[in-house]
């Protein structure tokens, strides 16, 4: 086991260095874009713990992000018993609220497996946006809630976008380490045992209810933190900020990143952001192929590109980016170090 540790540690160090230095080389606007990638990354880490390591499918993580986002908005705009909270302190609370919601969803999930769980969580994703519309007094209805623009604290001399970048990626790295420690430890082994065979796991004395709801709770905590950061970065929340399709995009990112590859989630997150906002660029690339002329600004292009990428990745590369890297790396090390 010890020999397997150093590649992950060095990968983490490399990521940390890149994250710390990147804003020096890119524009303020790019820093904002990268911050949003970081938020998707956090949400995907949570989804990876749930789906990749525990084997439970969720098509409703957009709803947990929304819960986090709304918690932050309500606490910092309306306050808690009239006492408004600073946006920074609402982040852990948002995570906890979403995490508790996750535990609650995790209880019925115990009796539902595979496809049924996918259906129910999909239902959650679809029906959640109805709640803010119905209870508009509390959630602000379709107009939503407007937050104060995020300001760097302690008189730090950075721009808002750079501040959000460092905040997001700082939290992301902490949560990455936490996720890594979790999946390597006793809990993680229990998660994986349940994923591989529930019957075998129970026979080995692992409590299914405890670990399956725990996985849901932790995973929703991650999504809640991501949603909270998303609300802070956008400075407003409404039902359209967390659309139904967001849950689907998260699953896309998870699949592309490679289900149980924590580092792979960075690739997944980048892809979600890129395809959502730069699908017209992809359409221009495709136009270089002979006999094709797509109008990059045509509606529907993002969905088409998303769909094709998703299908191609799942058919050709079922283990995602993480699996590919692992395979290449495995090839390299086995050639170098095995005596045959």
């Amino acid at each position: 086991m010890r020999a397997r540790l150093w590649p992950e540690l060095s990968a983490f160090a490399a990521v940390a260095v890149v994250v710390a230095l990147l804003p020096r080389f890119v524009s303020d606007f790019r820093a904002r874009e990268l911050a949003i990638v970081g938020m998707y990354f956090i949400a995907l880490l949570g989804l990876s713990i749930l789906t990749g390591f525990n084997g439970q499918i969720s098509l409703g993580h957009g709803a947990f992000m929304a819960i986090g986002g709304y918690t932050t908005a309500i606490l910092s705009v309306d306050g808690f018993f009239g006492h408004q909270l600073r946006d920074l302190w609402t982040i852990p609370i948002a995570g906890l609220v979403a995490g508790i919601a996750g535990l609650v969803v995790g209880i019925p999930a115990l009796r539902l497996s595979g496809l049924y769980l996918a259906l129910i969580t999909f239902g959650i994703a679809v029906s959640f946006p109805q709640l803010p519309k119905e209870f508009d007094h509390f959630f602000g209805g379709t107009t939503g809630k407007i937050l104060d623009l995020a300001k760097p604290p302690f008189g730090l001399g950075t721009t808002t976008n750079n501040w959000i970048y460092y905040l997001t990626w700082g939290i992301a790295l902490v949560l990455l380490v936490a996720a890594w420690l979790l999946v390597r430890g006793k809990t993680g082994r229990a998660f994986k045992a349940i994923r591989d065979s529930e019957v075998a796991a129970v026979s080995a004395g692992i409590s299914l209810p405890r670990y399956k709801t725990l996985a849901f709770g932790i995973s929703a905590f991650y999504a809640g933190v991501a949603g909270s950061l998303y609300a802070i970065a956008n400075a407003y929340v409404n039902p359209d900020v967390f659309p139904i399709i967001l849950s689907v995009y998260l699953v896309v990112g998870l699949a592309v990143g490679g289900l149980d590859s924590l580092f792979g989630m960075i690739a997944g997150a980048a892809l979600i952001y890129f395809l959502q906002n730069h699908a017209d660029t992809v359409a221009r690339w495709i136009n270089h192929l002979p006999a094709l002329s797509l109008d990059p600004k045509q509606p529907g292009i993002p969905s088409v590109v998303f769909g094709i990428v998703l299908i191609v990745v799942m058919v050709l590369l079922p283990t995602g980016a993480g699996g590919l890297v692992r395979k290449l790396f495995g090839l390299l090390t086995s050639r170098l170090y095995t005596r045959s």
Binding site: V251, L259, G300, S303, V305, G307, L310, I311, M314
Partner: peptide, 26 residues
């Protein structure tokens, strides 16, 4: 992907849904 895990197939049908939806808009 006939023998792949449930999730893989679910994701492919989701991809198909996105693709068809986009094609209709186009």
């Amino acid at each position: 992907v006939e023998n792949a895990p449930v999730l893989t197939i679910v994701i492919i049908t989701l991809g198909l849904a996105l693709l068809l939806n986009g094609l209709m808009s186009m």
